[in-house]
Amino acid sequence: MALAKKATSKDPDMDYMRSGWGDAIVELGKKHKEVVVMSADLTDSVKLGGFKKEFPERFIETGIQEQNMMSASAGLAHSGLTPFTGTYAVFSPGRSWDQLRVSVCYGKQHVIFCGGHAGISVGPDGATHQALEDIAITRCLPDLTVLAPCDHEETYKATMAAYKEKGPVYIRFGREKVPVVTTKNSVYKIGKAEIFKTGTDVSIIACGQLVYEALYAAKLLEKDNIKAEVINNHTIKPIDAATLAKSAAKTGAVVTAEEHQVLGGMGSAVAEVLAKESPVPMEFVGMQDSFGESGEPAELMDKYGMRAIDIVKAVKKVIRRKN
């Protein structure tokens, strides 16, 4: 797998995931005249300003109406358009879940919506604005594709790929710049988990910015002669059961890592697969069933245990449980 030069460095290049989303939407707008964008008063925050400037006639400002934005997007799709909608993940899918469930998913509408500013790394705004449950409440919905890309480039690719899907797609990303892990040449396919590093002792399955932490953890583990396999599980639904089960069968232990509650999140999705196909000891790195708080993003990632060092600890624990 072609990764960025500094993907496992202590000092990686940094870029915004949300810009990848915004840039892709402008590209899609140029190519496809049926692409429209809806925003709920957070246009520049979720990087929809570029599309608004370029295609004002196809840009729909709903004001602070996340529920109406979701159900109205289904109406737009039914009229023959392809809507991309954007706001913060705490509001959508957080506030708009019933509209997502009935209007969009049950209606099988091709609506692509982002959950911006997801995760605890939104920082000083505090717990009200830290979406740590969005994966849980989306992956339970039939026919919905759920994506959690790991960096700027992958968010761009995910957005471009989402356009080609037939049904509804949710794309989650955070506010802050995150380490650049992938390159233009890295393979990306919805529904296909990518093995970023091969190993034999443990599988670290991560999504979002925790993919970088997982890669860095794997590097730290080399000092202890532990060979970790690192998998970028960017598609939470439909989950790539084959790749995950094969890796778990090979290494015999799994640690999942995500910027999300461990209850119902990506790790739970992995556990559901492995319990059936390849049961092995597992540990879960993520929010441990608590709300966040105000603080700098880095401080919060440290305090709530979503760093490489926390993955290393989980790996050592799970390896002890192997026998």
């Binding site: 429209v36 006639e57 196809r58 729909i60 529920q67 109406n68 979701m70 159900s71 109205a72 997007s73 289904a74 109406g75 737009l76 799709a77 039914h78 009229s79 023959g80 358009l81 019933d98 509209q99 469930r101 009935v102 209007s103 049950y106 209606g107």
Partner: peptide, 27 residues
């Protein structure tokens, strides 16, 4: 039947999106 409805308030929200979408397309 155009769209699934039954969760109250959603159909009218679907309808405004539909009407806006038709206008955007000059239909």
């Amino acid at each position: 039947v155009e769209l699934p409805t039954g969760s109250l308030g959603q159909g009218v929200s679907n309808a405004v999106g539909l009407a806006k979408g038709l206008k955007i397309q000059d239909k």
